[in-house]
């Protein structure tokens, strides 16, 4: 389980972030006293930091600059400022990503998991049951059978695979697709899912994707 450190001075926001990340299966740590934040950060072992830019006493960008001198733990900057200037500054100080409030929770989770995947020390080959998943080739291989997935189908399949055994809402799938410049509408999503189902059936996997009425889909 990955650990995420939240550094946010707005209590309501911090608590909601805590709930969001805990529900998504992360171990959450938080800083609640904003004195010598950098020193506190150094003492906490974490896989990723969510850092607010406007903190009391100190500025998040300055903290990041200090923190980068001793650590390369990924940092996502959270901010209510909406200027490109802050973004450029944060990235140049070594932030891994920059998200403006109010953020879409699903997108925040996507960004977090993307960064964690990128920095994961062991790169494990993606697979589902005995199906090999090749994202680069966009294909699924089972024994000697191969199915080529379209970009959309692969995006859907990977998101389901990341949450295997959990219900994934249509809304979450839409967020993923739109975030990848695929602006599907409801019909198109249904079409893509049934095509994906067809391709999985061709590989001999029937009922891999289960529909939960009014909730979403589960990859079994």
């Amino acid at each position: 389980m990955n650990t995420i450190l939240i550094i946010e001075d707005d209590i309501a926001l911090r608590e909601e972030l805590n709930t969001l990340l805990t529900n998504s299966g992360y171990n959450v740590k938080m800083i609640t006293e904003f004195i010598d934040v950098t020193e506190q950060m150094k003492k906490i072992s974490t896989d990723l930091v969510l850092l607010d830019i406007t903190l009391p006493n100190e500025n998040g960008e300055a903290i990041l600059q200090q923190y980068r001198k001793s650590s390369d733990t990924p940092v996502i900057m959270l901010t209510s400022r909406t200027g490109d200037m802050d973004e450029v500054l944060s990235i140049s100080y070594g932030a891994d990503d920059y998200i403006t409030k109010p953020y879409n929770p699903t997108i925040l989770l996507l960004r977090i998991s993307a960064i964690l995947k990128r920095t994961a020390k062991t790169v494990k080959a993606l697979s589902y049951r005995d199906v090999k998943v090749s994202v680069a080739k966009g294909s699924l291989t089972r024994e000697d059978k191969e199915q080529i997935l379209t970009k959309n189908e692969m995006l859907i399949f990977r998101h389901l695979l990341d949450h295997v055994g959990e219900i994934v809402s249509r809304d979450d799938l839409m967020t993923v697709l739109w975030d990848n410049d695929e602006f599907l509408n409801d019909n198109a999503l249904s079409v893509n899912i049934s095509r994906l189902r067809g391709k999985l059936e061709d590989l001999g996997l029937t009922d891999a994707i289960e529909t939960r009425k009014k909730q979403g889909y589960i990859l079994r």
Binding site: A12, E16, S80, R81, K101
Partner: peptide, 18 residues
């Protein structure tokens, strides 16, 4: 003011999601 009001809006947004 805009930066300040974005905080409760963000919190409400997360509450809706949670």
């Amino acid at each position: 003011w805009v930066h300040e009001i974005k905080l409760p809006v963000s919190a409400l947004n997360l509450m809706c999601h949670n």
